[in-house]
Design a protein around this nucleic acid. Structure first.
Lengths: 254, 254
DNA sequence: ATATAATATGACCTTATGGTCACATGACCA
DNA sequence: TGGTCATGTGACCATAAGGTCATATTATAT
């Protein structure tokens, strides 16, 4: 079976990049009710990132529900009054953290390309996951903060976070559609199911990254180590081919 | 390939049953520091379950971290003083909720048997999952309370909950070992990986159950519906055989 | 009936939360 | 210099948290 030259990259990349306009929009316009408030963006860079660092650490450690504005304030050397001059409330802060992650992720993927360029969908997915891991190791606390809130609290305080989830689901959908058109996907698998499977593994791998990676001295080194890479490969291999020993495997080892 | 008559059931059942002794032990002895305190067990049944119902609802809605003893007290018609006469703190209450779940699950599985009895490991796993779902629908709030705390908060406040997780991991391990010995498992898959895969799907399915099931009027009916059953089947099929279209599938549809 | 032990109670304590507000400080322009 | 507007500040508020404790009530045994 001949496969046409592979271009899931472009479609997916554009799906991922979609929010970009919205983000720049945020910063260039003088919206009233877009949060955080303008005052915050007028702040000197250093002070602004001091605040965001404190917020990120807070969310990473306590999640959104249990994050304390008092603690964020204490850890960022601003007064309570200022905090409420910058933000509406902590959800507002979180939204901005989320924006930061989106921006940084987009910037990170901007100049990345799979080394080969005839990847099929599964190979591309693997590249996405691995590159995502690379990104994660550039800013683990940010990733932890977001993951914790979206994956964990988001499950239960659903509605407020749906907008975020939908975004990443959309990119997956594009990818899966292609896989189906190209006949790479088991035809008995429908879209909804495929999304669930791939999201589940994506989440599981990010959770694994956070759980194991944060124990390491050098998280980047750990991600790049052959052991970690092999683990990812194996897991995704199982996603593709399943746990069960198939007939061909059986004959090979019989 | 001939398979010997299947008896994963017994080993797994015994692995699952393992905690039983510990539980009965709790109730029959007059331990000082085993919580909840003896006073609690002296309570009339009705009052006791009134308290536990309130606690379960609280944990199901707020998790452990955000559960409020004050609210539990208010919803169970006992005074604050009494609460602290029964329990050390809310963790203590949670431990008892966990014990209840374990007990009820064991009791539920006690008289259950797969209808066929020559199941291989994957078929048996599917039976386990489905029967587990049946159990879940008998007491969804209890399951939700525990799941929420273990799966969600447990990920981050790890150490305190490890004892619980280890328990279920142990049962899986026994099952996987058998699958490997019988040559049902892809030989390139090692134990650690297999555990991760099966745990991940178990968790994903329970999460799915809670998210979708709790929307339903009759959760038991929903679980037993052909649609839900098919969804479970399909998902576990993917776990076994993977997402990718294999050569044999390709030829069948080419 | 009385003494003793077990249980029940809610006022009260400290600590922390999210949020407000009157005022202080600084920057820029007339 | 005086005035205006943006920014910064922390004391203060109501609310709720987990937890204690002196006292009141009830059971049990003598």
């Amino acid at each position: 079976m001949r496969r046409g030259s592979l271009r899931p990259k472009n479609e997916i990349a554009s799906a991922i990049k979609l929010p970009r306009k919205i983000i720049t929009y945020r910063f260039t316009t003088t919206q009233k009710n877009i949060m955080p408030k303008q005052t915050f963006f007028n702040l000197p860079d250093e002070k602004r990132s001091q605040i965001m660092d404190a917020a990120i650490d807070e969310f990473a450690e306590y999640g959104l529900e249990n994050a304390s504005t008092n603690r964020i304030i204490a850890n960022s050397n601003i007064s309570k009054g200022s905090f409420y001059q910058y933000f509406e409330d902590k959800q507002d802060v979180f939204d901005h953290v989320m924006t930061m992650l989106t921006e940084e992720k987009i910037a990170f993927f901007e100049d990345k390309q799979p080394s080969k360029n005839n990847l099929d969908t599964f190979e591309y997915y693997r590249w996405l996951i691995k590159t995502g891991m690379e990104f994660n190791s550039t800013n683990p606390s940010l990733v932890q903060a977001i993951t914790r809130v979206l994956l964990v609290e988001g499950q239960y305080y659903g509605k407020h976070f749906e907008k975020y989830r939908e975004q990443s689901t959309q990119a997956l959908k594009v990818m899966i559609e292609q896989a189906m058109q190209r006949g790479e996907m088991d035809p008995s698998v429908d879209m909804e199911l495929a999304i669930m499977v791939m999201e589940t593994w994506n989440n599981a791998l990010v959770s694994y990254f956070l759980k194991e990676g944060l124990k390491q001295d050098d998280i980047m080194l750990w991600v790049r180590s052959p052991e970690t890479q092999e683990k990812i490969d194996k897991l995704l291999y199982i996603m593709e081919y399943g746990l069960r020993k198939t007939e061909s495997q059986f004959e090979a080892t019989a």
